[in-house]
């Protein structure tokens, strides 16, 4: 209503939107992942950037080694007890807004490694989460 409509009529070459949606659109189209390659899943994460799976389709091919430049952390592989504090620390270094993808069954629930060394469901350590519990069996990792 109002200003939007007037603008749309008189200046059709200008698109109007809400700032929030604009920012969200920009964010969505170029999510920069922070690598957190841990185990076998990391190889498949690397594979996701290569020719066949082409992560660049989603604007996410820019893997940042520094958490300060990344939006989403991909935790790919099993998180050991020695690694968990490091993981938390790197998560804390990421700027807001931030997301975490837990890739693979191991990262999500411990997978086959139900033992003393692996943190079962480290996802409990975080609030904002998005998990993909599946081992990379097929072309989708």
């Amino acid at each position: 209503m109002g200003l939007e409509n007037v603008l749309a009529e008189s200046l059709p070459e200008i698109l109007t939107t809400q700032l929030d949606s604009l920012i969200n659109w920009a964010r969505k189209s170029s999510l920069w992942p922070a690598t957190f390659g841990l185990a076998c899943c990391a190889i498949e994460m690397m594979n996701a950037t290569s020719g066949r799976n082409d992560l660049a389709r989603f604007g996410s091919e820019v893997f940042r080694a520094s958490p300060r430049q990344a939006d989403v952390m991909i935790v790919s592989g099993r998180v050991s007890r020695k690694m968990a504090p490091v993981l938390r620390r790197i998560y804390d270094q990421m700027p807001e807004p931030k997301w975490v993808i837990s890739m693979g069954a191991c990262a999500t629930s411990g997978g086959v490694f139900d033992n003393y060394a692996i943190v079962q469901a480290w996802t409990k350590l975080f609030q904002s989460m998005c998990t993909f519990p599946a081992a990379p069996r097929d072309r989708k990792c």
């Binding site: 020695k82 690694m83 060394a117």
Partner: peptide, 10 residues
């Protein structure tokens, strides 16, 4: 040891 998985125990 950051990826110690306890496989030999398992």
């Amino acid at each position: 040891g950051y990826l110690h998985t306890g496989m030999e125990k398992l």
